[in-house]
């Protein structure tokens, strides 16, 4: 019997390995240009703003806001619909896709611009995905 298809997982490349090494140890790593200080994502070994090859990875705060999303209602391997697919605006500037977890997957619970905080979900020995949850839940702030 073939295995049921599972969630698609990333295959890191030499240019992105530091990001996936970071999520495994609980860090959301972005890159900053040493020349012009531009912070960017997704990873690449040069600055997309000024083309300098002198760039450094650093751990981001893990905080962001819910910039936009859809709630997917169709079956998808490895997911239980309905589930959110979101664009998170990170505190440092870049945007990234993720899922918002830890709250009802409804338009009422998923309010645009709500504060989010990263959490890490181990998918395999090699891959840990960065997901996001509301930073404020039922009035009590979740520790970051």
């Amino acid at each position: 019997m073939a295995q049921r298809p599972r969630r698609a997982l990333p295959r890191p490349t030499p240019e992105t390995q530091h990001f996936w090494d970071g999520t495994r140890v609980g860090e959301l790593r972005l890159q900053r240009c040493d020349a012009c200080a531009h912070v960017y994502f997704p990873p690449r070994p040069f600055c997309p703003s000024c083309a300098s090859r002198s760039v450094s990875a650093f751990p981001a705060s893990g905080r962001g806001t819910l910039h936009s999303y859809v709630i997917h209602h169709r079956p998808m391997p490895g997911f239980e619909p309905p589930y959110s697919i979101a664009i998170v605006k990170l505190e440092e500037g870049p945007q990234m896709m993720s899922n918002v977890v830890g709250c009802p997957q409804t338009p009422e619970a998923l309010e645009l611009d709500m504060p989010l905080v990263v959490e890490f979900k181990e998918m395999s020995e090699d891959i840990t995905l960065p997901l996001f949850r509301p930073a404020m839940l039922r009035g009590s702030e979740v520790a970051v």
């Binding site: 969630r7 698609a8 997982l9 990333p10 295959r11 890191p12 490349t13 992105t16 996936w20 994502f41 997704p42 859809v70 997917h72 169709r74 998808m76 490895g78 997911f79 589930y83 697919i85 979101a86 990234m96 896709m97 993720s98 899922n99 998918m123 891959i127 995905l129």
Partner: peptide
């Protein structure tokens, strides 16, 4: 899975253009 889209979008469950 090794493309940028494969690494940084597909793991979050989009199913083509509708999502």
């Amino acid at each position: 899975g090794g493309t940028l889209m494969g690494q940084f979008e597909m793991p979050y469950g989009p199913m083509g253009p509708p999502t």
